[in-house]
């Protein structure tokens, strides 16, 4: 199945021969990879999503920051922070932080894993589309996680008053943020409607 394709990077029109499984096409001139769909989209999305799912647990279980001041210390996990905000009457902020840092990451990770695992099934095509639409809707809100991290950093700046060190939670949480971002970027929505024969080539 020889084809003539143009390199996305340098525009060189070239001929592509048979591509065996586990191989990639490299441009004859600029050596960049030539792809029709996102490279290894399904694999990458699945790998990043699973990694994010694994790290989701320590990110919520371990404290984000530990602050020490003289004879006192304070360890806060994400959930404790949300609870504290709720108890202080900051219901909106509390709900927002819960949604953006606990609920939507979980939803997104679960959704991406669901889509990539069930991609071959002829059934549930509609469900996959709905899940993907939902992910697209909540995606911009996930960026608030970065704000949360910024708050954490500003806490570290409090170093002159109290000793603040980042907990294990913040490392895990930052990893979850980065991994879910990578997972979404890797996912090629065109896989959702590609016919099965083509899917196998590009996934």
């Amino acid at each position: 199945m020889d084809k003539v394709v143009a390199c996305q990077t340098c525009g060189l029109v070239q001929e592509v021969g048979e591509v065996p499984k586990g191989c990639v096409i490299k441009c004859a001139r600029c050596h960049f990879q030539i792809f029709h769909r996102n490279v290894d989209s399904r694999m990458r999305t699945l790998a990043f999503s699973i990694a994010a799912a694994i790290l989701y647990f320590p990110s919520n279980f371990y404290p984000i920051v530990t602050a020490e001041y003289e004879g006192q210390y304070n360890q806060t996990t994400i959930f404790q922070g949300i609870k504290a905000l709720w108890e202080h009457g900051q219901y909106f902020i509390s709900g927002l932080v819960f949604c953006t840092s606990m609920f939507t990451p979980a939803l997104k990770i679960a959704g991406l894993i669901f889509i990539t695992l069930t991609l071959d099934w002829t059934r549930w095509k509609k469900a996959r589309t709905y899940v993907f639409k939902t992910i697209r809707i909540i995606d911009p809100w996930n960026m608030l996680e970065v704000f949360l991290l910024a708050i954490g950093v500003s806490l570290v700046e409090m170093g002159e008053v109290a000793t603040v060190h980042p907990g294990r939670g913040v490392l895990s949480f930052a990893s979850v943020v980065v991994l879910t971002l990578l997972a979404t970027f890797s996912f090629d929505p065109r896989l959702l409607w590609d016919p099965p024969e083509e899917k196998r080539i590009y996934e």
């Binding site: 591509v19 990639v24 096409i25 699973i50």
Partner: peptide, 30 residues
């Protein structure tokens, strides 16, 4: 006169699974 694109083995595919493995390793370490 059309150049022929190179076909190379894709080593990234399997090394990709190092990412979830590393995540699990971090949890085990904790």
């Amino acid at each position: 006169g059309l150049p022929k694109a190179k076909i190379e083995r894709n080593y990234l595919t399997w090394s990709l699974w190092m990412v979830p493995l590393a995540a699990a390793a971090v949890c085990v370490y904790f």
